[in-house]
Design a protein around this nucleic acid. Structure first.
Length: 108
DNA sequence: CCCGTGACTGGCA
DNA sequence: ATGCCAGCCACGG
């Protein structure tokens, strides 16, 4: 799998995240078979923010909006709040209640 | 070509 | 429970 494949796959998974749900960099990385490259998933997000992808639904393992800096206009938190998710200080409240697991939801 | 820098994470102290 | 550390690897200077 080359870089562009990876980026494309990441964008596909991100696109599948349901409204009002969130997932993590690691979950996506693991789903794509590159478990140890969660960081690359984060890197791939740069390309997605510019596009029509719900990149705001991807947070870190503890439910923190570590990528909020890369959003403008509606901030990352505002976009999530708009979807019914409670966010306090860049931290999602009841994170696991909103967590979307690619493995289970896409029944691999 | 080498080096520092991350939207990260699991494991272990 | 909390915090630190070593892998991780594409990019830009």
């Amino acid at each position: 799998m080359n870089r562009s494949d990876f980026f494309r796959d990441v964008s596909e998974v991100v696109m599948l995240i349901p409204y009002g749900r969130v997932t993590t960099y690691g979950a996506i990385a693991e789903y794509l078979g590159t478990k140890s490259s969660a960081r690359m998933v984060g890197y791939a997000m740069h390309a997605l923010v510019a596009g029509e992808y719900p990149a705001h639904r991807v947070v870190n393992r503890s439910g923190q909006l570590t990528g909020h800096i890369h959003f403008q206009n509606p901030g990352m938190a505002d976009r999530l709040i708009a979807e019914g998710i409670t966010v306090i200080e860049n931290q999602i409240v009841d994170f696991n209640k909103h967590f979307w697991n690619p493995f289970i939801e896409l029944s691999v």
